[in-house]
């Protein structure tokens, strides 16, 4: 009990002092997760929309289970896969991305993408079919229909982005494997928490944990405000 309270007090001290090492880790987390989320959204949203706007998902019997499985991929398996691809002997080894931020971004994109595609797709599919007919009946072109329906599904699309964000910012296995948790280079909040806890630096670990939750809350608050009309 004592340790927890002491650690908490020390953690608050570190936080209010804007400890530079701490800020470094926060910055890396934001860059990696933000970049991965942006990329996954740029790819996943149009893909999910293209699939969700069709009357039928092409080869849906296969594609849907693949997407749903992807939504629950174990991050550490993704990490392993990306590691093998990017390692010196791997097919993409020449990129030299392993143990650098791009490798972490790649892994997080792979984790986030199925979530964004799958949830965007289902939110578009769950729009009342009468609405689709009505929009076309009022004279919408194909592009206008697509845009109107995506706007109608905006809450679901936002939920997709939130779910993906939550999945990757809290993820530790993949970034640990492909990033290597190198101080000042690839250390992010989750991997730093693991390390500091092992070292017995509970105060620092706790401060990192509070920051992680604060970031998650801040981002979700922003998303929520966006969805509130």
């Amino acid at each position: 009990m004592e340790t927890i309270l002491d650690a908490l007090q020390e953690a608050l001290g570190l936080l209010t002092g804007f400890d530079p090492a701490l800020m470094e880790v926060v910055g890396m987390t934001l860059r990696v997760t933000g970049g991965a989320l942006l990329l996954a959204t740029l790819i996943g949203l149009p893909l999910g929309a293209a699939l969700g706007l069709r009357d039928r998902v092409p080869a849906g019997g296969c594609v849907m289970p693949i997407i749903y499985t992807g939504m629950g991929l174990p991050p550490v398996v993704v990490g392993l896969f990306v590691y093998l691809m990017l390692s010196n002997q791997g097919p993409l080894g020449r990129l030299g991305w392993l143990f650098k931020p791009p490798a972490m971004i790649v892994a997080q994109v792979i984790i986030a993408l199925p979530l964004i595609v799958g949830l965007t797709l289902t939110s578009l599919r769950s729009i009342d079919p009468t609405v689709k007919l009505q929009v076309r009946s009022l004279g919408a072109t194909r592009a206008q229909t697509a845009w109107t329906l995506i706007r109608e599904a905006r809450l679901g699309v936002l939920a997709a982005i939130i779910a993906a964000f939550g999945g990757i910012i809290s993820e530790v296995g993949a970034v640990m494997l492909v990033g290597g948790n190198i101080e000042g280079q690839t250390r992010v909040l989750t991997t730093a928490i693991v390390l500091e806890t092992r070292r017995g630096n509970f105060a620092l670990a706790l401060a990192l944990g509070i920051l992680l939750m604060g970031l998650a809350f801040g981002a979700n608050y922003l998303f929520h405000r966006l969805s509130d009309e």
Binding site: D128, T130, V131, L133, Q134, V135, S137, L138, G139, T148, R151, E152, R154, E229
Partner: peptide, 15 residues
């Protein structure tokens, strides 16, 4: 196409 439009039983209003 735009010379014709339908009103359905369900109003299907947009959000």
């Amino acid at each position: 196409r735009r010379r014709v439009t339908t009103v359905f039983q369900r109003p299907a209003l947009l959000h």
